[in-house]
Amino acid sequence: MSKRFWKGIFEENPVLVLMLGLCPALGTTTAVKPALAMGIATAIVLIAVELVMTLLSHAVHEKVFMVVSVLLTAVLTSIAEYVMAQNFPELHEELGIYLPLMAISSVILSRVSAVSKSGSLAEALGDSLGMGIGFVLALATVSSVRELLGAGTWFGLQVMPEGFQPVAAFSMAPGAFFTVAFLAAAMNVKARRKASETDREGE
């Protein structure tokens, strides 16, 4: 279980290694605040869906398993949307289409199809917690880079010195693509170094 947990955070980070959930990772990361809100909402729904579907894995026929998962995710997403709209109307407005899009989030659905079918609750718990936290961390990293370079702020606070000229491209679509591409490449370098180290140990 704990092995699964750590895998989700670094080795198999949903966004930067598995390339899942690119849509929220690119769309909500203009600033740290909406990115964190999106990440936490997704993580909570992911944990709930993965656990419930694991419990139901014997009761639901394999053919309709994914359809049931999608419907459950959609219902939970609607609830998350409602809660967000009631308590944080500004964030809800800012997230726009990306919050309801969680209903078919590839992070949630691919984890459910990869883990929940086995029916092991411990595996599902470790995996969903790891993937959820990994997703939040990835979004936080991407949005930190973009907010610092694109606006010179972090979580709305002025961080960069006064002379800093914000690079507007980072708060627009191209900057999102570049940031995620470079972070994913950095994760690649790390994974490769680790792989070659274990090779040497083997020799």
Binding site: M19, M172, A173, P174, G175, A176, F177, F178, V180, A181, F182, A184, A185, A186, N188, V189, R192
Partner: peptide, 16 residues
């Protein structure tokens, strides 16, 4: 390290 998806993302950024 850019092979695979990262370089496609860079291409997509340039297209954007």
């Amino acid at each position: 390290s850019f092979r695979g998806v990262p370089i496609l993302l860079v291409a997509a950024g340039l297209m954007a």
